[in-house]
Design a protein around this nucleic acid. Structure first.
Lengths: 166, 166
DNA sequence: AAATATTAATGTAAGCTTAAACCAATATAG
DNA sequence: CTATATTGGTTTAAGCTTACATTAATATTT
């Protein structure tokens, strides 16, 4: 058994089976970290870039009309300040532009430049190929059920947040 | 529909259904980020601490004999340099200690102090309660299948890494 | 035994991330 | 209309994270 798989099993070894939520969570986290590491390595080796930069370009590619900083922040699920920093560098590098919005003078819309889109398209192929490769053994049925479980957990988070607000 | 659930659906909207790996991956990431955010907020609000610090204490609590820095690095799936920094502060704060190992003079074993263990036990309860709450709607069957899917993905990563080595 | 390679841990520089404070513009309330 | 609250975005300080280089000790080769 490989070193990392050994470690995650060792982590779970002494956790009682009635703590199924905890067990599941640890498994999700370790899987996520492994996949993310593969993506980071691929982006660094092939494109000399980082995951946050890639994700920002990816968001903009999906929305041709562009996104405001706040929308990017929500899309990427990171703080607004974080987006400011990453967008600044991508803008200096010529991959994105910011245009003022006519309706709100505080806000502006961020879009890909031609260079940004061209770069993204190159990366997209490697990215998607990698993911299809890693998920190839997951059947459609499994995929559906998996999605359902994730949705339940997300709902629970949502509900908890709404209760906290009230 | 809540703002964050709306965003993740919007992300998937224009992704073709034959890219099921990508779709699944984006769902996992968004779920993971949401749950992690809940944990971070809880740790900050209740214990004025951070997730990395908590995770290091958690690892040591699971292994009463302690772990070396390298073992901690593999357990937490972060770089050794990262562990050095976090362990340094926890040591200054009196929650962990480092003892030299008799067999290898380069290495030492990190263990919880009494204060560290006491602090961890307080946090552990809130942590586990939170997770059981978030995963409460997941049935045992779902849990098994979910675990199986995660294992398949991890296996794919493992295999990819072994191929890369060769 | 001496040379070489590997391993345990730390140091460094760069980049990411956050929470909170802040500013400016817009929206709401009285 | 004016006061107040909210919102869009940036800044700041602190902490996290990584990859890579380094140092010292252990293992392996020859």
């Amino acid at each position: 058994m490989s070193k990392s798989l050994h470690i995650v099993e060792q982590k779970l070894e002494h956790i009682p089976h009635d703590k199924e939520g905890l067990r599941l969570w640890l498994r999700i986290v370790s899987c996520t970290q492994m996949v993310e590491q593969e993506i980071r390595t691929m982006l660094r080796d092939k494109f000399a870039t980082t995951l946050p930069r890639f994700e920002l370009l990816c968001a903009l590619d999906r929305v041709p009309d562009g996104l405001t900083m706040g929308e990017l922040s929500r899309w990427l699920m990171v703080t607004k300040g974080n987006v400011t920093g990453i967008a600044e560098k991508l803008s200096e590098d010529g991959f994105i532009t910011r245009q003022p919005t006519p309706t709100d003078r505080r806000s502006f819309v961020v879009t890909l430049t031609a260079e940004g889109r061209a770069l993204y398209k190159q990366m997209e192929e490697s990215y998607e190929t990698l993911l299809e490769c890693l998920f190839v053994d997951v059947s459609p049925d499994e995929s559906d059920l998996f999605t359902g479980v994730l949705a339940k957990v997300k709902d629970a988070v949502e509900q908890r947040r709404q209760e906290g607000e009230g």
